[in-house]
Computed example of a mutant assay.
Amino acid sequence: MPTLSDTHIRNRYRVQPNDANNYETLHGGELMKWMDELGAMAAMRFAGETCVTAGVDDFGFHRPIPVGDTALVDAYVYRAGKTSVTVRLRAWREDPRTGETERTTGSSFTFVAIDEDRNPVRVPELTVETDEEERLLREALEAES
């Protein structure tokens, strides 16, 4: 059975002018797209199947990410149903010169595992083994409330 750590993925995206809104900060829709893509990768790593987005919960923007900075996006599976998985997604603004980070965004996305005919298929149970995995699970569950 896959562990929470098996699904943990982190990626960086350099914020370019074509990613920005008229305030010269990252467009929220662009960040949501990046988070959706990374969340799907975490879900597929967990399920071993193609996964498609079924829902997005509580997508909160706490601060902007300016052009020239890096969007650091983090994803991991924290809940498994019969055919669906829930992925915690977080984003930070990262200064590429100093490495300084500041939390900007948090959300949970639900993905459904599908087969070649696009029918839902069962997913495995999630295993949480380490103290770090327990901490991440608690954090994701607390964010839901």
Score class of each variant (00 low, 15 high):
Asp57Met: 07
Leu72His: 13
Glu49Gly: 00
Phe61Arg: 02
Glu49Val: 00
Ala54Tyr: 04
Val73Lys: 03
Gly48Arg: 10
Ala71Ser: 13
Ala75Trp: 11
Gly39Asp: 01
Phe46Cys: 05
Cys51Gly: 05
His62Arg: 12
Pro66Ala: 08
Val56Trp: 00
Ala43Asp: 02
Ala42Gly: 08
Val73Thr: 15
Met41Ala: 13
Thr50Arg: 14
Gly55Thr: 04
Phe61Trp: 14
Gly68Ile: 10
Ala71Cys: 10
Gly48Asn: 06
Arg45Ser: 03
Ala43Ile: 01
Gly55Asn: 07
His62Asp: 10
Asp58Asn: 14
Leu72Asn: 07
Val52Gly: 07
Ala71Trp: 08
Gly68Asp: 08
Val52Glu: 06
Pro66Ser: 08
Ile65Arg: 03
Gly60Lys: 14
Phe59Val: 15
Ala40Phe: 01
Pro64Trp: 03
Asp74Cys: 06
Phe46Leu: 09
Leu72Phe: 14
Ala47Asp: 05
Phe61Ile: 12
Gly39His: 07
Ala71Asn: 11
Ile65Leu: 05
Gly60Glu: 15
Tyr76Arg: 13
Ala47Phe: 07
Asp69Ser: 15
Gly68His: 11
Asp69Ile: 01
Thr50Phe: 04
Met41Trp: 01
Ala42Arg: 03
Val67Asp: 03
Arg45Ile: 05
Ala71Ile: 10
Gly48Ile: 04
Leu72Met: 13
Phe61Ala: 04
Ala71Arg: 10
Pro64Val: 11
Met44Gly: 13
Tyr76Met: 12
Ala71His: 11
Thr50Lys: 15
Phe59Tyr: 13
Val56Ile: 14
Ala40Met: 12
Thr50Leu: 10
Met41Phe: 00
Phe59Asn: 02
Gly68Cys: 10
Asp74Glu: 15
Arg63Tyr: 02
Val52Met: 11
Gly48Tyr: 07
Pro66Tyr: 04
Ala71Pro: 09
Leu72Arg: 15
Ala42Glu: 05
Ala47Met: 08
Ala42Trp: 00
Glu49Arg: 14
Phe46Asp: 02
Thr70Trp: 09
Ile65Gln: 02
Phe61Gly: 01
Tyr76His: 15
Thr70Gln: 06
Val56Arg: 03
Cys51Lys: 01
Arg45Thr: 11
Arg45Pro: 00
Ile65Met: 08
Gly48Glu: 09
Gly48His: 08
Asp69Ala: 13
Val56Phe: 02
Ile65Pro: 02
Val56Asp: 00
Asp69Glu: 15
Tyr76Gly: 07
Asp69Cys: 12
Gly48Trp: 05
Gly68Lys: 09
His62Leu: 11
Thr53Gly: 04
Asp74Tyr: 06
Gly60Leu: 13
Phe59Asp: 00
Tyr76Thr: 04
Asp57Ser: 14
Gly60Val: 14
Arg45Lys: 15
Ala43His: 01
Thr70Met: 11
Ala54Asn: 01
Val67Cys: 06
Ala54Phe: 02
Phe61Pro: 02
Gly55Lys: 09
Thr70Cys: 04
Tyr76Cys: 12
Thr50Gln: 12
Asp74Pro: 02
Ala42Leu: 03
Asp69Val: 00
Tyr76Ile: 06
Ala47Trp: 04
Glu49Asn: 15
Arg45Asp: 02
Ala75Gln: 11
Val67His: 05
Val56Leu: 13
Leu72Ala: 12
